[in-house]
């Protein structure tokens, strides 16, 4: 049960109430042209290149056993990259980075708990992305672990293909999930959430939504 993580940002203020840590997962069923976290589109690890740091020294090309780096000017032949990380280590200026590392919920827990005292007065942990509900079971497990420490949780989801997973997630029916309690589901982009008579939920039209776990 793993979550591919693109980045963990500490003391975020705009991903839910209060002061939070935000986990950006990799992988999304949508490919919106305006996506502001494009490194989160693919679920697989990727080599990121910060061109403002690159001096064109060619150390990456020397270090790469697969011929994926072309120097002068620097370019990456991604079809050759095997994500071995040798270029990352060789770059003196920190211009290369492998984005995407798998974490189990248990491995994420201590990382997210480092700033637990910052979450007091309304903050907590947000799982964003990418599409967190591609990994609904693992995220639900992570939330159960964090809830065990009294951490308040938020996740945001695209709703495009993950609604079914979300219902499992919210109602705790996913394997290992022990979530109970109250949830706020806020639909955005015009969608409405209907509470059905049988206690189930239905999204009126496909659309994004945010789950706040109380």
């Amino acid at each position: 049960m793993k979550i591919p993580v693109a980045a963990i940002r500490r003391l975020t203020l705009h991903d839910g109430p209060g002061t939070r840590t935000t986990v950006f997962v990799k992988g999304c069923p949508l490919h919106c042209r305006w996506c502001h976290n494009p490194e989160c589109l693919s679920a697989r690890p990727q080599l990121l290149f910060h061109d403002n740091h690159c001096a064109g020294c060619g150390r990456c090309a020397e270090a790469c056993p697969h011929g994926a780096h072309i120097s002068a000017p620097h370019a990456i032949d991604r079809s050759r990259c095997r994500l071995c990380g040798k270029c990352v280590d060789a770059c003196w200026r920190g211009a290369l980075e492998i984005c995407g590392r798998d974490y189990t919920p248990e491995a994420l827990l201590p990382i997210l708990m480092r700033d637990a005292d910052f979450y007091e007065s309304g903050g907590g942990v947000t799982v964003s992305g990418g599409e967190p509900l591609l990994y609904a079971e693992a995220v639900a497990r992570l939330f159960a672990l964090l809830r065990g420490h009294g951490i308040r949780l938020v996740t945001s989801a695209s709703g495009e293909s993950a609604w079914k997973a979300a219902k499992c997630f919210v109602f705790g029916s996913a394997a290992d999930a022990e979530l109970t309690g109250d949830f706020d589901l806020s639909a955005i982009s015009g969608a409405r959430i209907k509470h059905l008579d049988n206690g189930n939920l239905e999204l009126s039209v496909p659309g994004a939504f945010v789950v706040i776990v109380r």
């Binding site: 003391l11 203020l13 109430p17 209060g18 002061t19 005292d117 910052f118 007091e120 007065s121 903050g123």
Partner: peptide
């Protein structure tokens, strides 16, 4: 959020 963040930051640093 910013104002609350500042208060929270002071409290947490001191704790």
């Amino acid at each position: 959020e910013g104002a609350e963040f500042l208060v929270n930051f002071v409290r947490t640093l001191f704790a």
